[in-house]
């Protein structure tokens, strides 16, 4: 009896350990994060250091807003002339139930909705909530017909959120940013 029980215990343990960790839900990402990042150029050289704040909040019932502030440091400091501060915000609404989120359009009932025309330069922005994090994509067809794709991947960690950003132009990665943050609630 004992060998059979031991074997069963091993089998149950094997199944439990083989199961992947539960994927994070959208709500798990909500919060404020502060951290640092390194910017690398196409030759993989560190060209900038940044402080960054990220705030992820719910939008309506199933969407979300990401707001981020980047402060480009001067000699590793933010109290010297030449420091740059940039703020950006984008809001996404779900499209379907499979993890696709599309940038929410501002609705003005008094203005006719304009058609989006990617080949005229209108950017496409969307997000993907997957097992490996929230991926935000920004895509644009440039005037010369080449494309620019920016990808932001934000992954939950034990202490906060890690960020990987890539800027790709016509297949070539021109810029990469690696950042790490801690939750600051």
């Amino acid at each position: 009896m004992r060998p059979a029980f031991t074997a069963l215990a091993f089998a149950v343990s094997a199944v439990l350990f083989a199961l992947p960790a539960a994927a994070a839900s959208l709500a798990d990402y909500f919060g404020s994060y502060v951290g640092v990042a390194e910017v690398r150029d196409a030759a993989d050289r560190v060209v900038e250091q940044r402080d960054m704040d990220i705030v992820i909040t719910p939008y309506r019932r199933r969407g979300f807003t990401i707001r981020w502030v980047n402060v480009t440091l001067v000699d590793g400091r933010r109290d010297l002339p030449g420091v740059e501060r940039r703020v950006a915000e984008v809001t996404f609404e779900p499209q379907g139930d499979d993890g696709l989120f599309v940038e929410a359009q501002t609705v003005n009932p008094f203005v006719e909705r304009e058609e989006m025309a990617p080949l005229a330069g209108d950017p496409l922005r969307w997000a993907k909530l997957g097992d490996t994090g929230i991926h935000v994509f920004s895509f644009v067809v440039l005037p010369n017909g080449r494309y620019e794709l920016q990808t932001y991947t934000r992954r939950l960690t034990d202490v906060g959120l890690d960020l990987v950003f890539e800027r790709v132009v016509d297949g070539d990665t021109l810029r990469r940013i690696d950042g790490r943050t801690v939750r600051a609630d």
Binding site: G96, G99, F101, W126, F137, Y147, L149, D170
Partner: peptide, 18 residues
Amino acid sequence: IVVYGLTITADGGVTLLR
């Protein structure tokens, strides 16, 4: 010529062909 195809899947993934 250079031909491009961008496909966004239902789960938000993207395939970009050049």
